[in-house]
Design a protein around this nucleic acid. Structure first.
Lengths: 345, 345
DNA sequence: CCGCTTCGTCGAACCGCTTCGACGAGCCGG
DNA sequence: CCGGCTCGTCGAAGCGGTTCGACGAAGCGG
């Protein structure tokens, strides 16, 4: 492991000159620069990350904080992570995957923040009221959220535009002629815990349906195929004439499809299904392939990291607040309802 | 940000004493220790990670190197990652997610290794002949593989026991009475690239089938639902009387199910399907739920990190080589073949 | 009672890099 | 021709810890 000293000695300059060649913090003449670069090449020199971090007080490490419960990450979250990692790598930063206990581990978070290992952090799975945000801000760590709290004043975040996504999905189904549309959300517990996407889409669904003069029916579902089956059963009991299901639950939607088939209801001829915030890969797994609101996926992670790095590198303290809608991708799980005219007769 | 100096001053001891209290490298008396701990608590002291890393030449950061191509991580890989992250966190290490270009980025790898940011690395998606292994070893970075190369001499690795997994899967199907079993593998390109799991399972399938006196038929498939459909079509052409499919392709298996249904073949009554190296979550998504060889998932990631940390903390240079089989979990996609007796009569 | 460990603590030398102040050398305008 | 700049470089002081050698005090066997 060659050090800067070695390079300086070989190039017959001082260490500070070598440092300036590397960082560009001060002008260096052509000739000197060439000598230094040659010496570096000859010694196969690589700057020591720790030393650089200590001296410059910039670790060039970003933290990606995500609660990791028992059942791991869904496809959507995984896309956030990979997008963030790729973006960080592209701008010369490292990305640490830091599993933080969802709940009471605030102290652990504070400790982490105080170790000054992270120049900044991306916080995932944000609740509407999330005490982690305050703790992090208080610790003085630059912060970008994927998702957002209820009050976003002074915060940087990237999130899915749930309102618009729901509006488009409902408009699409209504346009096909559907009138009895049931919304299958995450579980009641998830809703109660203040999980933003579940709550925002719930409200947006009410607004959208009411706007079309239709009755909004929402059914919660556990995040599992079995949960989807149960939810569909509940939905049919509640709304026997339903012709379309809008599902905000990547996992449950497969159970919904199964239960539909099991009851002799054809998709899409008897019942149409639209899956919200879903990746193409997952949508293609279903039979028929799911018409879905395609999640921005890795783009969210990428944008979050880019915003964070811009904040760190630039002196700016401007906030980055951005919402990305999901794009409607029509596949085989939707059609006009069988028993009505498309215009709703 | 309080420093060690501040703590030492408040506790009226020297910095080295504070350091010894923290690291336990030398004995400290009860009284002194108490004074120091009190001072730390009062100042809310947290050691600076960079400084500690520089002085001790141990960053307490592990790298998780994985090629990240366009389509992101599958459920199995995601489980590795989360398992590794949780394990690292549990033993006081950080885990950096480092996307390394699959192919020619060896120089980038070497550079990364020379920066001394990682105390050790876990390498994922290992090929049978993987030049990254040599590069890393040469750079002197402690290394554990998830997966393994062809020659594992002197290497530490954790991998799935593909041979046993295939043997069990085949034995199970044969036991049910199946005789015409087709193996759907990853794509031909993947096989050609030397991807270990694809090659090992291929060979194991041949061995297992031959051992039962049956003809081994393998069909490659793209990693997509469409690839699965195409593969099933090819399989039926090749083996019109097939009664069971063994699939080593989490994504394609959904296409296989779809195509089967599309052709009026019932699962499991007409054709049984077993999915290899599959997580319960994914298996439950299918209709019917997939009988699967359940992948060890996060356990692999955890074991890899634990082995690596043991190697780093202990002085030992013993190798850790471990194979974990997938466990057969019977769900709804398998049954005895319709047209024959269970004993194959 | 003496010399020798062992225990607990201190001071100082790093670890490898960044950054600040200083300074000689050219260059400019007046 | 001179004062004052800017340019390019150097030396040294950190950054915040770890670790080694030293050293006084206490404990011990002979």
């Amino acid at each position: 492991m060659a050090t800067m000293q070695d390079v300086a000695r070989l190039a017959q300059v001082s260490v500070s000159t070598v440092s300036y060649v590397l960082t560009g913090a001060r002008p260096i003449s052509q000739g000197t620069r060439a000598k230094v670069l040659a010496a570096m090449a000859q010694l196969d020199y690589q700057p020591n990350a720790m030393a650089r971090g200590l001296a410059s007080r910039r670790s060039r490490i970003l933290g990606l904080l995500l609660p990791m419960d028992e059942r791991g990450l869904g496809a959507t979250e995984t896309a956030f992570v990979t997008g963030a990692a790729a973006a960080a790598s592209a701008v010369g930063y490292h990305l640490v995957l830091s599993p933080v206990g969802g709940g009471g581990d605030l102290d652990g978070l504070r400790r982490l923040a105080s170790q000054r290992m992270f120049d900044g952090v991306v916080l995932m799975e944000v609740q509407l009221a999330d005490e982690r945000v305050g703790a992090l801000q208080q610790a003085g760590v630059p912060l970008v959220l994927i998702g957002r709290t209820g009050d976003t004043a002074g915060l940087s975040y990237v999130d899915i535009d749930f309102e618009q996504t729901v509006r488009e999905a409902v408009a699409y189904l209504v346009g096909l002629g559907h009138r009895q549309i049931v919304y299958v959300n995450h579980s009641a517990e998830t809703l109660a815990s203040g999980y933003g996407p579940a709550l925002r889409t719930r409200d947006a669904f009410v607004t959208a349906m009411t706007g079309h003069g239709l009755e909004p029916v929402m059914i919660p579902a556990q995040d599992s195929a079995a949960g989807g089956r149960a939810a569909l059963a509940a939905a049919i009991t509640r709304t026997p004439g339903l012709t379309a299901v809008l599902a905000m639950n990547e996992t449950a939607v497969f159970g919904i499809l199964g239960e539909l088939t099991g009851r002799g209801l054809a998709v899409p001829d008897d019942v149409s299904v639209v899956s919200m915030v879903t990746s193409p890969q997952v949508a293609e797994l279903a039979t028929p392939a799911l018409t879905a609101m395609t999640s921005p996926g890795s783009a969210l992670g990428r944008i979050a990291v880019e915003a964070l790095v811009r904040h760190l590198d630039g002196a700016g303290d401007e906030r980055h607040q951005q919402l990305l809608p999901c794009a409607l991708e029509i596949r085989g799980s939707t059609a006009a309802p069988r028993s009505r005219h498309p215009d709703g007769g």
